[in-house]
Design a protein around this nucleic acid. Structure first.
Lengths: 204, 204
DNA sequence: TTGATACGCTACTGCCAGTAGCATAACTCT
DNA sequence: AGAGTTATGCTACTGGCAGTAGCGTATCAA
């Protein structure tokens, strides 16, 4: 049997590299991310990094996954609170500036690596997207949103709209603005933020 | 006086290069766009290209501008018809696949060229965006949309959502799907497409 | 001690945008 | 016709950066 033979890997390296990646991502953005810089910052060798992650993009995806943590994928039963929490968890780790979500997707596209694309979808994109769709669907059943709202379309419009502003328009989006944005798109204005538990309350 | 002295530039080159750029963009996408390929395709020299456009991105922006033409920036007075036309003009030239709008924005970001960024905004992004905002605002005044719709937010959500699906989710968006998308986001379903001129008709 | 695997280092390959510099072509002015 | 000027096309180069090769050394199990 293999697995325990030879010198074991140092945990320190994984942590340091992942931290360095997130740190540089935060400080300089994805466009300026250089593998040599990550190595220097993590006080390790570039070759050591490549022994763990097959490419820079793989590394970034792993770093994003770790930074996002569990992403508050739970529900309180109130749309406003749930989506606000999602915004906190999703935007927080990467600051107000344009998140790397988009840039990474584009780079994956460039490499034509279908497996990587699927990893990205499964671990970074889909969890948040599906959860948000579920939240919106539940809110419709509860009567917090009208029955004419298309959950998936609405969610894509919100996420896409935020990304668009941050990446294409280069307008840093703050957490507050993001929360206002989804309310505007879904037609829920914040002034009546104290209508907790007041509305219908129908169905499951 | 200068200007007319020396060998004049060949129009053929401008046209051929722009056409080749759009063609390759359409065929292989922005990620696979190579300046040498453009030169070959246009039957000219790479150096000649650089004498006209300072960088590949500048060239692509110019090519996009030309491909988009006048973009149907006019109004019939009916939101549905106007937005549909905008979709036709905006998606058409680049096919159903993810348009280069996003990738170009990211590359501009990478080069930190503020002047280029401003050119891109002024010539490619803003015209469509501002026009769409004006259309939605007018539709609200007309009563086609409720007064609680935020024009700019709604427009960014629609454009961003479409880009998000095409680029991040890698789901080619057809013209039909794009038209359905904006209707869903704005809460206007197509079945009642014949309510032309029926509603309110208030204000200016 | 041996065998296996990890680490760190230097040096390399490969891709590709953008540049240098030259020979030659095309046009204007005198 | 000739001189001055600018464009084209070519080959060859620079430079940034992701990813790789291979070696000496360190750290573990048996």
């Amino acid at each position: 049997m293999t697995g325990t033979r030879g010198r074991p890997r140092e945990r320190r390296v994984d942590d340091a590299v992942l931290d360095a990646t997130i740190g540089l991502l935060h400080a300089r953005g994805y466009a300026a991310l250089r593998i040599d810089d990550i190595a220097t910052e993590a006080k390790t060798a570039k070759t050591t990094i490549y022994r763990r992650w097959p490419s820079l993009v793989h590394l970034v995806v792993a770093a994003m996954e770790r930074a996002l943590g569990d992403r508050g994928l739970s529900s309180t039963g109130h749309l406003a609170a749930d989506l606000d929490r999602l915004v906190d968890a999703g935007l927080g780790p990467f600051g107000a500036g344009g998140s790397p979500v988009l840039a990474v997707a584009l780079d994956i596209d460039r490499q034509r690596d279908d497996e990587l694309r699927s990893i990205y979808r499964r671990r970074i994109i889909d969890p948040v997207r599906e959860h948000a769709v579920a939240l919106v669907t539940a809110a419709i059943h509860r009567g917090e949103l009208g029955p004419d709202v298309h959950p998936r379309t609405a969610v894509d419009a919100v996420i896409g709209g935020l990304i668009y502003r941050a990446a294409v328009l280069a307008e840093p989006v703050s957490v507050e603005e993001a929360k206002e944005f989804w309310r505007d798109v879904l037609g829920m204005r914040p002034p009546r933020a104290r209508d907790r538990g007041t509305t219908h309350d129908a169905e499951v």
